[in-house]
Design a protein around this nucleic acid. Structure first.
Length: 954
RNA sequence: GCGGGGAUAACCAAGCGGCCAAAGGUGCAGGACUUAAGAUCCUGUCUCGCAGGAGUUCGUGGGUUCAAAUCCCAUUCCCCGCACCA
């Protein structure tokens, strides 16, 4: 160990030693195992501060578990499947200026190196090396024998097996799904392809098929239940409509709607045009209720929205009510309408507490909406919708659906209506228009014959809920979020046309989508160690069936695959030992996708004993308050951080700045101060080599006992925090609080137990900053600290008397200083008076009563005054007792215990600290008990209370 | 809109019924050390106070309680996700 801290030298030395000694390459043994995984990084760039946080948290847990006696497996792989790497290769190959800038400046890759990575394969190769190197220089305790990349042929064999298996379990089905589509490019558009309308989502309307003779007038609605309250339809007389053949029906819709229909999975054929005017006055049949309703004119009907034909539900839709009211007295004779439309009766179908029978009417009068063109009409609509959705219940008007909550009805009705052939689904953007980069307006297209994972299957979800119920979620607040997301998850397309990956085994034109192929790979880490013992082709289904699921026997598997039977046996044994995953630790962005799929696939494939046990989540990292961006900057790479500060400081800092899901902010001013603190730690250890003597063997002062006692608390807190994965709290205790304790100890002149403390302290710190701890530990001549035992709190070293002594010393010092500051004199003489012994009795009595829950003034006084020894102080007792009662009411339990259970002599404690105090204050200090005050010219001694001596200064 | 998280002193960030004027850090100010700078150490940092005290604070407005930063209700604002993309 050198006098000055040189992180790089130390880092490199210990990383080399760990690697040479292969201490992080575990094999099954008789210890309990702990299998921790972190989602492998995607290989389209260098690891950055965000990875640094997530991965370091994982490494701390791995190291901690190892030190408390587990056999820890912490493996790592690389993710390469999907489209981004292919896209990146194209950009680099054509030297796209923006890409070159980002990768050269932000990812810090020299231009000449960029020249050598122009194909996806080269990129994968390059970044997997870079990432591995980065994880090594920061000292992660990873078993590198098990690394792999998701494009490896062996890995693909596992994916093939997985998907065949899922298909055989009916978890992969064929279907169609709507995508944002550019008609010009004839391609689906992704977020970054969109010029305008990025926030638009795809909304599914229910299309209700009203009948007009042999034709169909479809009305799009988000509230299919309102079909029970339809009084008429609305058509805008000014817009052009189209009659078209849709599958085997004839539909009439707006021209715009017709254009959209052409992109759906329906067969659409143009028949002719129809003016809106022509439709008005006709009567259509409500397909659900069978009633005949009139088509009326309305200006608010937009051809852009839905089908361009609107069903009118005036009882619940303000627009409909207003439009109907606006027609009052209007001359509709040109549409051959003779009846008085204002007498059309409203039909109520939802009961909601906030409103009467006709919520739309109430809302319109509440907001004083003038007519259908009044902007407040929109507001009224939203209000009614929100209230009805949340607290509305269907009435008898809806027949068998009566009594159901509005919020639950949509899917039920849509499903029922479609089954009856009277409804359909129509997709629409939530915002319009959506414009592609090429300038064309996007539409929604149904992609047909797509392969789906049917995550929406209730029986599948049921199993996932069960799995979640038995898992630990860290932090626990997020459990509800997981539940919500499981509920929300729909079927997911799992095959793509483009990108790297494994082909769909039964339909090789498709590539398995990259989130689906990274769901159960944790099991593959176990196989990955054996890769040089067989060829990819040998990894037949039987291999995985046996090794992962225990189906068949090693012998048959060996004969089918041609792999050595002993190898197969080892893999199966390894699997049984290591699986399941004990902890998966990840950033919060992966909750609604990867982590969810991780659970779904596990429950689908593995028996319950191999379902995951815990998931931990952490937040993001920003830089100086700015959000990091891989593609725009700012970005801080792991490599550059370690280069600047060394592994340990980088680790300590990234861990200490935020807890759990909180986002961390990387600030250079703060990490600089971490560096200083850390150098202080190094120096402290350098000046006083660690040792492990038995602390009880020699005479200890209060301050030594205090330090030992404090250490036990720090150990306890650190351990507790680590068990809950509250890493920040763990670091606070293991490092910062320990540092402050040590500073106080040194200031108080403590030396006796310093070396012992450091010996323990470095073990407490080893999971966080392993390199420096190894370096310090080396002086004790023992083996790796990484394999040493994590400290355990020794209850017998907790010394409440010593703590009280330090507390009174600290309090007294602070009080003296405050008085000096206030009266602004240079003290020549300070006299302390500890509280009279009768006061201590009052306090103890009060605490006892508090513990028995009988503390009040009257009972306390009775008890006190029955004691003859109290009599002499009868005059002072009541006032003091009053004060003590308030103090005791707010006292924490530990303090009460200490004060009543510990035989503590204040005067003795102060005597032991007297040199320290007089040195701090700069004058002589005398100590008396208020029982025999000695020198007390101002009668201060009577102010003394327990734990708070009276002070006289002159 | 839906769902999740959040709002604490100059800043970051703990606390989540009594120990709270509120941990820790940063910044700032003063002091010690030093020829000086740096580093280090100490002290202070809501307001008032020439004896260790008092007063007003934890987004905003109500409420529960002997007691609220902490619990309940309402409200405002901020961040994230809402998919076929890793």
């Amino acid at each position: 160990m050198k006098e000055w801290y040189n992180p790089h030298e130390i880092d490199e030395k210990w990383q080399r030693k760990w690697s040479e000694a292969r201490i992080f390459e575990p094999e099954p043994d008789d210890r309990e195992k702990f299998f921790i995984t972190i989602p492998y990084p995607y290989l389209n760039g260098n690891l950055h501060a965000g990875h640094t946080r997530t991965f370091t948290i994982g490494d701390v847990i791995a190291r901690y578990k190892r030190m408390v006696g587990y056999n820890v497996l912490f493996p790592m792989g690389f993710h390469a499947t999907g489209t981004p790497i292919v896209g990146l290769a194209e950009q680099i190959a054509k030297k796209d200026p923006e890409t070159m800038r980002v990768y050269n400046q932000l990812h810090q890759i020299p231009l000449e190196v960029l020249d050598t990575i122009q194909t996806p394969e080269q990129i994968v190769e390059f970044f997997s090396k870079e990432d591995e190197a980065a994880m090594k220089i920061i000292g992660f305790s990873i078993d590198w024998r098990r690394k792999f990349t998701t494009t490896d042929p062996h890995y693909k064999k596992m994916i093939t097996w997985q998907f065949n298996l899922l298909r055989s379990k009916n978890r992969v089905v064929k279907g169609a799904h709507p995508v944002r589509w550019c008609p010009h490019d004839e391609n689906p558009v992704e977020d970054h392809d969109i010029l305008k309308g990025e926030d638009a989502t795809i909304i599914d309307y229910t299309l209700i098929k009203f009948r007009l003779g042999g034709d169909i007038l479809p009305c799009a609605t988000l509230r299919p239940e309102t079909v029970f309250g339809v009084t008429n339809l609305w058509v805008n007389p000014k817009i052009l409509h189209v009659k078209a053949r849709v599958n085997d029906e004839t539909w009439i819709v707006s021209k715009e709607a017709y254009d959209k229909l052409k992109f759906t999975d329906k067969k659409v054929e143009f028949i002719g045009e129809i003016d809106g005017e022509e439709l008005i006055g006709k009567k259509v049949t409500n397909p659900i209720t069978g009633s005949l309703v009139l088509i009326l004119p309305a200006s608010f009907v937009s051809p852009e929205n839905g089908s361009g034909i609107v069903m009118s539900v005036p009882a619940h839709a303000p627009y409909d009510y207003l439009a109907l009211r606006d027609l009052k007295g209007a001359d509709l004779s040109k549409y051959a309408i003779t009846e008085d439309v204002s007498t059309i009766p409203l039909i109520s179908l939802i009961k909601v507490p906030e409103y009467g029978k006709y919520p739309a009417v109430d809302a319109v009068s509440e907001l004083k909406v003038k007519d259908q063109n009044d902007p407040k009409a929109e507001e009224a609509t939203k209000l009614v919708y929100r209230r009805e959705f949340h607290s509305g219940v269907l009435t008898e008007t809806t027949g068998k659906y009566a009594g159901m909550a509005v919020s639950k009805i949509k899917d039920v009705l849509t499903h029922d209506f479609i089954e009856q052939g009277i409804a359909d689904i129509f997709y629409e953007f939530s915002e319009q228009p959506v414009i592609c980069r090429c300038g064309a307006t996007c539409v929604i297209k149904m992609v047909k014959d797509q392969w789906f994972l049917n995550y929406s299957d209730p029986s599948w979800k049921e199993q996932v809920y069960e799995c979640l119920g038995n898992m630990q979620i860290i932090p626990p607040e997020l459990r509800v979020e997981f539940g919500n997301k499981i509920d929300w998850l729909k079927d997911k397309a799992c095959a793509r046309r483009k990108g790297l990956g494994t082909r769909v085994p039964w339909d090789p034109e498709w590539v398995i989508e990259s989130l689906g192929d990274s769901t159960i790979y944790m099991g593959y880490y176990i196989v990955a160690k054996y890769l040089d013992e067989f060829e990819p082709e040998q990894l037949k289904a039987e291999f995985f069936n046996y090794c992962f699921l225990g189906e068949g026997t090693a012998q048959t598997t060996a004969s089918i695959t041609g792999i050595d039977e002993s190898t197969i046996n080892s893999i199966r044994q390894d699997f049984l030992y290591w699986y399941p995953v004990d902890l998966r630790s990840s950033g919060k962005d992966l909750i609604p996708n990867h982590l969810l799929f991780f659970l779904f696939h596990h429950v689908a494939i593995f028996p319950k004993i191999h379902w995951p046990r815990a998931i931990a989540i952490n937040g993001f990292v920003s830089l100086e308050g700015q959000k990091m961006s891989k593609s725009k900057g700012p970005i801080l790479t792991l490599k550059s951080a370690v280069k600047e500060y060394g592994a340990d400081i980088t680790r300590l800092y990234i861990l200490s700045t935020a807890e759990h899901v909180q986002d961390a902010d990387w600030r250079s001013a703060d990490i600089e101060s971490t560096r200083k603190q850390f150098e202080r730690f190094y120096k402290m250890a350098f000046d006083c080599p660690p040792c492990d003597r038995n602390a009880g063997n020699y005479e200890l002062k209060f301050i030594d006992k205090w330090m030992l006692s404090k250490l036990q608390y720090r150990i306890k807190e650190t351990t507790d925090a680590l068990n809950k994965m509250e890493i920040r709290r763990a670091v606070q205790n293991a490092f910062y609080h320990m540092m402050n304790d040590m500073k106080w100890y040194e200031r108080r002149g403590g030396v006796a137990v310093k070396a012992d403390i450091i010996g323990v302290w470095i073990r407490l710190m080893a999971p966080f900053t392993p390199h420096i701890c190894e370096e310090i530990h080396e002086r004790s001549g023992k083996d790796f600290i990484s394999l040493d035992k994590f400290p355990e709190a020794n209850i017998s070293l907790i010394d409440r008397g010593a703590e009280l002594a330090e507390e009174i010393t600290g309090n007294t010092l602070r009080d003296i200083e405050e008085i000096i500051r206030l009266i602004r004199i240079k003290p020549k003489r300070v006299v302390l008076y500890t509280a009279a012994s009768w006061k201590k009795k009052v306090l103890v009595k009060a605490i006892m009563m508090k513990k028995d829950n009988v503390l009040d003034m009257k009972t306390l006084m009775n008890a006190l005054m029955s004691d003859p020894l109290m009599r002499p102080f009868a005059k002072e007792v009541p006032k003091f007792a009053q004060k003590i009662i308030t103090d005791v009411q707010g006292m924490e339990k530990e303090m009460m215990d200490s004060l009543t259970e510990v035989d503590f002599d204040e005067t003795k404690a102060l005597y032991e600290a007297v040199d320290f105090l007089s040195c701090e204050i700069g004058c002589n200090i005398e100590i008396y008990s208020a029982d025999e005050p000695g020198y007390d010219p101002q009668g201060k001694s009577k102010h003394a209370v327990p734990m708070r001596p009276a002070i006289f200064i002159e």
